[in-house]
Write a protein that binds this DNA or RNA. Sequence first.
DNA 1: ACTACTACTAGTATCAGGTATTAAATTATG
DNA 2: CATAATTTAATACCTGATACTAGTAGTAGT
Lengths: 189, 189
Amino acid sequence: MIERLPKKIRQQQLTAAIEHNPFITDDELMRMFNVSIQTIRLDRMELSIPELRERMKLMAEQSYDQVRSLPLHEVIGDVIDLQLDKSGISLFEITEHHVFSRTKIARGHHIFAQANSLAVAVINEEVALTASADIRFVRSVVLGEKCVAKAYVRSISKGQTKAQVEVLSYVGDEIVFQGNFVIFRIHKQ
Amino acid sequence: MIERLPKKIRQQQLTAAIEHNPFITDDELMRMFNVSIQTIRLDRMELSIPELRERMKLMAEQSYDQVRSLPLHEVIGDVIDLQLDKSGISLFEITEHHVFSRTKIARGHHIFAQANSLAVAVINEEVALTASADIRFVRSVVLGEKCVAKAYVRSISKGQTKAQVEVLSYVGDEIVFQGNFVIFRIHKQ
DNA sequence: ACTACTACTAGTATCAGGTATTAAATTATG
DNA sequence: CATAATTTAATACCTGATACTAGTAGTAGT
């Protein structure tokens, strides 16, 4: 007799094995557990674990959807309103990605990133870079909160090479972040 | 006669169609271009576009690898050295993700994120949050450069509720970023 | 001891979405 | 017109399954 596990335990281990390596075939699982391929398939049925190809398809679709929703990389948050060289508003929702796992408080650099990218976006120039910033995290923002950043261009230097942008971020009507950015404006020749 | 395109143009459009929707089958493409399925397959061969299942598998594997390598979200950059309440060093390589597509210059908030997360990590407390910061982007960092951030704890307040951390980031021996962070230390009860 | 039930195995037909190969038909071009 | 490029057709085969039928082994109930 080949060593075999009771059904319940095998099914637990099967779930774990597929979770650990979603790219495993029924054939490999059959050898792993010393049972027939039909048993593996019955187990998957009972546990409602889809077949390999379905699993890969789901993963592919998920990552595809993520990529679609990731012009996040261009500007952090959704720009709601933008008046070049004047002001701008963006909205950014705090998700699991952005928080410390223990406290569910948003990491500062995400709040900063929203403000910084808005400050850059509001500048009407092909190339705009942050030169310096003076920032304050007024209160912590937690998972699920929607952060509204408002940017105001306070001044533009004589040579138009620098702009002062103030950004205030709110959750509801509470200020959570305040920053003064100096943005370089670089002319294209 | 059904309307058909010249080969070159069809192949361009085929590439675009698959790029636009990687989940399309040869069968659907065949109907889209009014050619036989063999023609579609020849085209894919010539363009070395893998079959649907391979495409899905690749996407799934990519997203799986990404998830594996994404404690990036916990601390931005690799912490090389860490002496709690004293100093820390982290290394961060600028990739396509981090740059403006046109100029290949790193977005400020990524440089900031490295410095900020290191400043938080260096604090020997369960919960540490950025209170404020005063930062300067000394020179721009470009695609491919490796950014070394060095954090020094300059002072800890009497009640140990606040710490001053200075972070200097370098590419080679050039300073690219300089920041003074005030970090809140919150005791667990 | 006979029955019923669970767990497992075996085998076959079928599917999607292809590859690989050979060959024929069509169209274009010098 | 001949030849080359392009397209289509046909067939065998592959992987990783589903769906279904049927059979076996062991165990518990009566």
